[in-house]
């Protein structure tokens, strides 16, 4: 199932399938390219922006921009590998 990154709930993971060309360059520099596994860590108290974690990076994106990134779901078992420091299961209570 493919959907916008903004639809990810805190704690949910996804694999990036497509990035809108308007954002692609800026995000590729940070390592966010199609194929990247990421996870939504939390939303800000006012609901926006949300924080996503990939490749040991925590990046905040607004819903408006996140909607331009498509992700496919991952099974819980394939959720982001816990192979680097900084990755953990923190999300909104």
């Amino acid at each position: 199932m493919e959907r916008g990154l903004d639809c990810l709930r805190p704690g949910e993971g996804g694999i990036v399938t497509r990035v809108d060309p308007a954002l692609a360059d800026a995000l590729a520099r940070l390592g966010l390219i199609p194929g990247t596994t990421l996870r939504c860590l939390r939303r800000c108290p006012l609901g926006d922006p949300a924080v996503y974690r990939f490749r040991a990076t925590d990046l905040a994106l607004r819903g408006r921009d996140a909607a331009k990134i498509r992700v496919s779901s991952v099974e819980a078992a394939d959720a982001p590998r816990d192979d680097s420091p900084g990755r953990e299961d923190g999300n909104d209570p």
Binding site: R42, P45, D82
Partner: peptide, 17 residues
Amino acid sequence: QPGRPRRDWDRLLLGKR
């Protein structure tokens, strides 16, 4: 040897309440 996760201070710093 992968490192332990960092302590998640953002749970507090960016927490709802």
